[in-house]
Write a protein that binds this DNA or RNA. Sequence first.
DNA 1: CGAAAAGATGCAATCGTTGCCACACCGCGG
DNA 2: CCGCGGTGTGGCAACGATTGCATCTTTTCG
Lengths: 358, 358
Amino acid sequence: MGGVAGCNVSVHEGSGLVGEQPLRPVTLADIAREAGTSASTASRALSGRGYVSPLARVRLLEAAERLGYVPDASARTLKQRTSRVVGVAVSDLGNQFYALLAAGIEQTLREADYQMVLVSDNSDRAQELSFARTFLAMRAAGVIMTPADSAAASLLARNGVDVVEVDRQLAEVPCDAVVIDNEEGGRLATAHLLELGHRRIGLLVADTDWTTDAGRLAGYRSAHAGAGVVVDERLILPIAFHAPDAEQRIAALLDKQAPTAIFAANNQLAEHAWKVLRVRGLRLAQDVSLVGFDDVAWTSMVDPGITVVAQPTIELGRRAAQLLLRRIDDPGCEPGFECLEPTLVVRASTAPPTLATT
Amino acid sequence: MGGVAGCNVSVHEGSGLVGEQPLRPVTLADIAREAGTSASTASRALSGRGYVSPLARVRLLEAAERLGYVPDASARTLKQRTSRVVGVAVSDLGNQFYALLAAGIEQTLREADYQMVLVSDNSDRAQELSFARTFLAMRAAGVIMTPADSAAASLLARNGVDVVEVDRQLAEVPCDAVVIDNEEGGRLATAHLLELGHRRIGLLVADTDWTTDAGRLAGYRSAHAGAGVVVDERLILPIAFHAPDAEQRIAALLDKQAPTAIFAANNQLAEHAWKVLRVRGLRLAQDVSLVGFDDVAWTSMVDPGITVVAQPTIELGRRAAQLLLRRIDDPGCEPGFECLEPTLVVRASTAPPTLATT
DNA sequence: CGAAAAGATGCAATCGTTGCCACACCGCGG
DNA sequence: CCGCGGTGTGGCAACGATTGCATCTTTTCG
């Protein structure tokens, strides 16, 4: 440490003790000069590629350490035409589901020394496309998204950026994807209610053309078919995200269709349904059964606890990141598709109907 | 559109209809050639700086549009020595509080056309420092962090990167900060319980040296002092984050110190306390009162609802981002400090003690 | 009418890193 | 002793956008 007396002298700017304004960042050329080599050699020593004598290596490493060298990511990206950032676009960071998804992604990326650029696009096509352009501009190593539209994925793929779709699937280009088995989830929830004896099961589902909602709806139908029960279409209520009248419409469904149970196909709708039931003074399980989708915290804390279809949310994020890392590592590999299984968590919000109708 | 017949001809690679592998991204030089100008003029036209004739401008704009030009962020960053990304480091993305904080930050940054690089550092000093280096390498325009240690902020500040501390404050360098008035929050919660007649109020607080916990503790003491009540130090229980024995220790506190009320100074501890009380069959309000800190979703959904000190979490994030944007805009301005006021939300988990001791 | 100002453009250098290429050593086998 | 691989090393040209400067053209105005 500081053994070479001359070292400080050769530093052009007083960078040592006072710690004031290096301002101009330390470059490779600086540490090369410091160690008496060329920039090329410095680059080789620090990146570990190519021949460098042991002596030069330690000198350079020491110099880099001493001067606090931090390689310039943009220069590297410019030269190598790819960066270590991964773009991640989710629908709504404020929603616990997407936050956990992002947490899972970030964790895995971090372990592989990639950075996550996270944006929340409100499921807006224009914003999604704009973010795709941004990720393109950053020369992102890849992009993970919960897609709202196929245009973004197409744009990215066309420009050679790897895309992983997570939670939903709607790309028109071949691409990696990891989703939940939504149909199975819908089936689990619905079959559970059917087995309890319910015959009029209201379905609250997001009003989208996404695979998540389509899958859950399909599961709902399939469970009915399996049980030989005809679905009354009026029991199916599509509700747009953030619809201001969501709770009124749920209330109307309760009034007009007299369901004995409700299957709310996402965590928001479950919350809405729960609130409507509470406001109306309807007792869960006794008066109306309720099944939610996505095991968010409150469902196990309220009394009675809510029966839900649990998704491995963080794992979903991790898998998506793993899929992307695999593709970065081996760009030629077959598009991967993973489908994680949801599980039914039975709590106290479901019970046989009190007055069984036909 | 496509009026100039020759335009496709001059494109060297078939980029038009087939949409297959442009592979090499479109550069400024490409669109300059396409429009018959130099790259300099193209740059001026697209960036809007400097003289460009109207004719050249439209030609270049059209060419850029037609070829799908996306400026290379790394080249721009390299040249301008600053990027449009803002590094954000929070303690734990899986915690709703930090997720919402990040959501608020992202929203504001997005509106100003900045990107958020989000990392979750687990309050680990080493990780935090490593991220600071990464942000440095990316030439981040600024960094927003919930700090765990002062080293990261110092490193960044020393290298000319603007730092905003959010939620907590512990930088040794002058820097912008936005926090909650934790002392007031602690006081609100404690005073509420004291007014109800409680004299033995257990305090669950994170075992850190952060300003959040110190502030809440100070508020707890200050409220006692204001009411002329002496604090029994044995009622104060510091619990480390993710301590596996958190609930056992809370149970022990209940057993040994017989508090008539509990003030849990963060959302995790509130959840732990709530669970312990439930497991023990203790009725909220009637047997033990409970006040939480941070109005997360479940607190208003459980029965009885939990009285909490609510923080404007998203707003906290927004303000932090605004502070950073202001500083980027005017690097010389005085370090800003904002302190947002928490509010007490009284629900049904608090009531006068049944058996008033002393 | 001529000079100065404004308008418009291109050249070339620059940002920091990487990687190709050439060169310079070394010892060794032919 | 020549050449040949194996080692090290430095020079130089990229990567793609920006920008100061020089150049050239057009106005404008005294």
